[in-house]
């Protein structure tokens, strides 16, 4: 259990003192994630709308994906 307990204590310590490596990772993760999510929304929602109301070639294939 020492592994878990020591790991947890040290983890909380790293977060509380805003470890520079940790801060950098959080920032980069947020940038990548929010870029990807924004793109997914801008492209995915219209594609979803087209799938819901439209008839077009390849619709069946896109539906499977």
């Amino acid at each position: 259990m020492d592994l878990l307990r020591d790991g947890l204590i040290e983890a909380v310590r790293l977060i509380l003192r805003a470890d520079p490596e940790l801060r950098q990772l959080v920032l980069r993760s947020l940038i990548v994630l929010l870029t990807a999510t924004a793109l997914a929304a801008v492209v995915g929602v219209p594609v979803g709308v087209a799938l819901a109301i439209g008839q077009f070639h390849g619709r069946a294939l896109v539906l499977v994906l």
């Binding site: 995915g44 929602v45 594609v47």
Partner: peptide
């Protein structure tokens, strides 16, 4: 993207 499209 396929998740956003599928749920929409």
């Amino acid at each position: 993207e396929p998740i956003a499209a599928g749920f929409t």
